[in-house]
Design a protein around this nucleic acid. Structure first.
Length: 568
RNA sequence: GACUCGUUAGCUCAGCUGGUAGAGCACGUCCCUUUUAAGGAUGGGGUCCUGGGUUCGAACCCCAGACGAGUCACCA
């Protein structure tokens, strides 16, 4: 058998061959006509009615309990598990008992996908089961699955928990860890609920470019790529804000997009290089209006997913019921630190930050200092959903200046469970001001801020043509999904989180290669001769030769006193 | 990027002071007609993450590295 397979994998390949020899196709092409599933059966079966008497189900073999001529097995389909009862003389009506004795008992393994025809009944122990009349192999599994068992006390044994393996082999994770599937179903409910809400309001779902010649709409480092035909640099979008605003200029009065965005930055349990945001732009609205919309929408999402507005996240019960608390940033800082910073200049802020033990540095301006104090002293304490409004102008080059407060913009974030979940503005539509703000960003860029925004002439042209007063929103779908599914890490709400590449499978080690090369060049050699020619240390020599023998590449021929190493 | 912890059978994990690598489940063979973490008997299965070092001898001690997790830093 092939090198590198485990014993269990070899056994399964032998089994596969036996099945083929028996004329059973382990990978049949034709459709399998299932007419129900585990959930329907468990919920709908009534002993008195004697219903579900001709069922056809299919799923993955998850356990097998053989007791002589009768057996129980469990199959798992998309909705859960159901027990199958198999009796030898019913599966094999004639004299030939191969189907039961060999195929079922020996050749069907945990992990195989099978179809079952039969009738539903309740066992003596009271478990609703399918009494099989026919068993059909639909797919042979060649790799053993981790076996997770739950005992009568509900205690789980041998759970498949290693995060690395779970993320790298999400398919396995999904098979053996039912709660994982639940979390992803909730995530999809979330986006469905949001989409339904926005469609109901009459907004248009759109798609905008992911490959962009100029990246913009946020402050972040991008991924860079190259288009061969046009011979130009393209960037994976870090946001889609500017494109959506161009559509508002074009005359749509409400557009939204569920957007995969890409940021070439650090990874953590809150950050993945690609993540999903929903951005929404609505004409003739301002940020107050948008706050109402966010409250309404997120409350609905919680209701759609959980049937109530309260969501348990670790130790905290978060209640999304409207209305949410609203603080201006100044109010929030005063509330949590007792310090009123609204009238402070940069020097005073610096002193305040130091008093509050907020880490700061020389390069920080007034806006950044305020943001640092907020981020350090307020944000982590905001567990219940809370709107924070009116941010310093320096940090928001795309937001409109506040209608009445000097130095601030009309911007809000919703903070929940100590983390930002959305960001919204009354959008800046004054082209003169917008150009000036971009130019300030250019200055920052020249001073070394590699996340400063780039001036986008096409966007400015659009704004000059005229964008109606508009309110815009960006809401982090992954972060919201983490809260709605009580997940501690973004990796738990992404099917395939980004990971370092897996280590390559076994190849020849250096010492093995050295010996192998000598043998290839010189032909078969006597053992001492080979050792000398290889020129390896004792340890390496021993390891290398043993390794080669194990890989099945060499063998030792003994002839009297001389031992010769041969290539196979 | 810093610190801490981890990496041993297909899975979950033990492995004492450095002395021939273990358990449960899974797998192979055998027994058993309503069981359920089914049971009983028996057997096979290992690059102890990788590479160096110390040692008569390393899963274990030392050094370097890989991968992962957590905390912090960074992150509009």
């Amino acid at each position: 058998m092939s090198i590198g397979l485990t014993e269990q994998e070899k056994v399964r390949r032998v089994t596969l061959k036996r099945l083929i020899d028996l004329g059973i196709n382990p990978y049949p092409a034709e459709l399998f006509p299932i007419n129900t599933n585990s959930k329907e059966i468990k919920e709908g079966y009534k002993e008195a009615e004697n219903n579900f008497q001709e069922v056809v189900v299919a799923g993955r073999f998850m356990s097998k309990r053989i007791m002589g001529k009768a057996s129980f097995a469990e199959i798992q389909d998309a909705y859960g598990k159901i027990q199958i009862y198999i009796n030898r003389d019913e599966i094999c009506t004639g004299e030939d008992k191969t189907m039961y004795n060999d195929v079922f008992k020996k050749y069907l393994d945990i992990g195989d996908i099978v179809g079952v025809k039969g009738k539903v009944f309740k066992t003596q122990v009271g478990e609703i089961s399918v009494h099989a009349t026919e068993l059909i192999l639909l797919t042979k599994s060649l790799r053993p699955l981790p076996i997770v068992k739950t005992d009568s006390d509900g205690k789980t044994h041998d759970a498949f928990t290693d995060p690395e393996q779970r993320y790298r082999q999400r398919y396995t994770d999904l098979i053996v860890n039912p709660h994982v599937k639940e979390a992803f179903i909730k995530r999809t409910k979330l986006t469905n609920s949001m989409r339904q809400f926005l469609n109901h309001k009459g907004y248009l779902e759109v798609e905008t470019p992911i490959l962009q010649p100029i990246y913009g709409g946020a402050a972040a480092r991008p991924f860079k790529t190259h288009h061969n035909t046009l011979d130009m640099t393209l960037y994976l979008r870090i946001a889609n804000e500017l494109y959506l605003k161009k559509l508002i200029v074009g005359g749509f009065d409400g557009v939204y997009e569920f957007a995969k965005d890409f940021r070439n930055e650090g990874m953590s349990r809150f950050h993945n290089p690609e993540f999903t945001q929903m951005e929404l732009y609505v004409a003739y609205k301002d940020y107050y209006w948008m706050m109402d919309l966010v409250e309404e929408m997120v409350e609905k999402i919680a209701l759609d997913i959980h049937g109530k507005t309260e969501v348990q996240v670790r130790k905290n019960t978060i209640n999304f019921q409207r209305p949410w608390k609203r603080y201006t940033m100044y109010e929030a800082i005063e509330h949590f630190t007792g310090v009123d910073i609204s009238e402070m200049n940069e020097a005073e802020l610096r002193i305040t930050a130091e008093k509050l033990e907020v880490p700061i540095d020389e390069t920080m301006g007034r806006g950044k200092l305020i943001d640092e104090i907020f981020g350090e002293k307020c944000e982590p304490l905001l567990i219940q959903p809370t709107f924070i409004t009116d941010y310093p102008v320096e940090m928001s080059p795309l937001a409109k200046k506040h209608r009445s407060k000097e130095g601030l913009v009309e911007r809000f974030e919703a903070v929940c469970n100590g983390k930002e979940i959305c960001n919204a503005f009354t959008e800046l539509n004054d082209p003169i001001d917008q150009r000036a703000r971009f130019e300030e960003q250019l200055e920052l860029g020249k001073r070394g801020d590699d996340e400063a925004m780039i001036l986008d002439e096409d966007f400015l042209r659009a704004i000059e043509i005229g964008m109606p007063p508009t309110s815009g929103l960006g809401i982090g779908i992954d972060r919201l999904a983490m809260i709605m599914t009580n997940s501690n890490s973004i990796q738990d709400v992404l099917f395939f989180p980004q990971m370092r590449p897996e280590k390559k499978a076994i190849e020849m080690s250096d010492s093995e290669k050295t010996i192998f090369e000598v043998l290839k060049k010189e032909g078969n050699l006597e053992i001492a001769d080979l050792k000398e020619k290889a020129g390896l240390s004792g340890k390496q020599w021993d390891k290398g030769l043993k390794g080669l023998t194990k890989l099945g590449l060499t063998k030792v021929e003994v002839n009297g006193d001389t031992k010769t190493i041969c290539l196979k």
